[in-house]
Every structure is written in C-alpha cells, then in structure tokens.
C-alpha cells in the first residue's frame, strides 16, 4: 500500500450549509410576513388613507427598481451555473453585474426617499401630523419596510463582494461553490420580498 501520498480530506457538508441557509431564509420570510400582516391589517382599517397615500409613490421608479432586481437575480443565478462550468471570467462578469444592479437600485432608492422627505413625508413630520393616522401609518410602514429591505440589499452587496474576491483569488471554484450558491439564495430572498413590496406599496392605489 502506498502511504507516501497523504490525502487531506477537508470536511465539508454542502447539503448542510444549504439547509442552514434555507432555515435562515425561513426566519427572514417570517420577519417580513409579520410586517406584511401589519400592513394588511392597517390597510383594512384605513382603506381610504392608504389608497390616497399610495398615489404619492412613483409607479415608474418602482417598476424600474423591480426590473433591476429581477435582472440581478437572474445574473447571480447564472453565476452559479457558470462557476460549475469552470468559466471564471463569465462568473466574475455576472457577479459584478449583480453588484452594479444593486447599486443602481440603491441610488434610485436614495432619490425616491429624499424626494419623499423633501415633500415632508417622513415619520413624525408636520405634513403627516396634519394628514392623520392612516397616512402616518402608510408612510411609517413604507419607510420601515423598504428601509429594512434596503438594509438587506447592503448586506447582499457585502456578501457578493466577498464572493467576487474569492472567485478572483481562485479560493472559490467549481469544487466548492456553496458560498456562491448561498449568497445567491440570499439575493433571491431580497428579490422575493421586493416582489411583494412593489404591488403593495406602489400599485394598489
């Protein structure tokens, strides 16, 4: 028996990592589900105010941001395939496109929020005090839910940046793509939440 070669087998459990990521995603889904229920109840109790307040939001900005997030989700999903096909260059291009899309989303969000704040629609503003409870609730939920979502985008940007660095250093390859897959799962979650935020805040006027 040849003992001259010592095979070092690093212990890894990719199925376990993925399951762990999914369990984390479940907690995230329940967190946002709770907020959606709060939104649903207050919309039910203040239909008129929610109807009018939602008209303050720009449908076109919301639609553009939706499409940006959908494209970024597709690019990171494709990166999971391209790393397995050993195409490092395409993987990097796809990951960086995802990052660029995330940044465009955040820039849009910045202009959207500063526009709202400029018009006096921000939590505990004088404008909202004069408008009453329904509008205060709508904009409170709007800023909290899209803000929490934007926070998730920023975390995703950090995560994907780490993946980009590791792919370019060849420490993340087709042999161990689980970090890329899990970052992808997280990014799809961010997309998933936005798919519900968009109609509820922008479209139901």
């Amino acid at each position: 028996m040849d003992t001259s070669i010592i095979v070092e087998d690093e212990h890894r459990d990719d199925e376990g990592s993925k399951l762990g990521m999914w369990l984390f995603i479940f907690t995230e889904l329940l967190l946002f589900a709770g907020l959606f229920i709060v939104y649903g109840v207050y919309r039910y109790l203040n239909p008129e105010a929610f109807h009018l307040a939602a008209q303050q939001l720009s449908v076109s900005v919301g639609t553009i941001n939706t499409i940006i997030l959908l494209i970024s989700s597709a690019t990171i999903a494709m990166a999971s395939s391209s790393i397995r096909l050993k195409n490092k260059k395409l993987t990097l291009i796809l990951l960086i496109s995802t990052l660029v899309m995330a940044l465009i989303f955040m820039v849009n969000k910045y202009f959207e929020w500063s526009g709202k704040i400029h018009h006096g629609f921000f939590p505990s503003s004088d404008t909202l005090h004069t408008l009453g409870n329904g509008d205060t609730l709508f904009f409170g939920l709007y800023f909290f839910m899209t803000g929490l979502h934007a926070l998730h985008i920023l975390v995703g940007v950090v995560l994907i940046t780490i993946v980009v660095v590791r792919v370019s250093k060849n420490t993340l390859t087709d042999e161990n793509p689980v970090l890329l897959d899990n970052s992808g799962l997280y990014w799809h979650l961010v997309d998933l939440i936005w798919i519900f935020l968009f109609p509820l805040f922008y479209l139901l006027t």
Binding site: R12, T66, I67
Partner: peptide, 30 residues
C-alpha cells in the same frame, strides 16, 4: 467521501426565459 453534491447545472437559457417571464408579469401587474 464525496464532499460536493452533484447538483444539476441549469442552462443559462432557462434563467433567461424565467427572467423574461418575470419582467412580462411585472408589466402585466402594472
């Protein structure tokens, strides 16, 4: 022991079709 799971590699085309469907549904919902 096999460490990495033999996961199915989804062709790029599938993702592009799904993306097209998602964008179409967004336009329909607007």
């Amino acid at each position: 022991m096999e460490n990495h799971s033999e996961s199915h590699i989804v062709p790029y085309k599938t993702y592009l079709y799904i993306l097209a469907a998602l964008i179409a549904l967004t336009v329909i919902s607007v």
